[in-house]
Amino acid sequence: MCYVSLRNVNIKNISNFAFQTGYFLISMADLKIALEFGGGAEVLVGNQKVHEVAFPSKNKVWTIGDLLYWIKDNILKERPELFLQDGSVRPGILVLVNDADWELMDTVNYELKSNDRIVFISTLHGG
């Protein structure tokens, strides 16, 4: 198992590493969350459904709004407009915070907490 501290490290490099390994641990002071993509949204992030990520949380509050841009800059593999639109997710993607619709959690303003699970689920239409 890998152990990586994010302090003083360029977050983009770490994210690439995290993406390759799909999993890493960080020190306790950091914000550790699980990102999940489903319903086809995983195609946007290299067909990987689960991403364990961590952010330096010292002096910084991370909102889902920040997270969206972090995803765009770090793990998004497709054109940004397939994921983001006007500072939010594009129509047809549902965001869930710990198994609840993010509309119940103040959407982009929700402040991430350690061990949160944020799910991006594309709605299905087939039958």
Binding site: G40, E81, R90, P91, G92, D101, G126, G127
Partner: peptide, 20 residues
Amino acid sequence: CLFPVPPPPHTVTNCGDGGV
């Protein structure tokens, strides 16, 4: 209430293309 705006057409996959 959940989806006030329809998804962009090119983001929609059907069973004929995506399989099931």
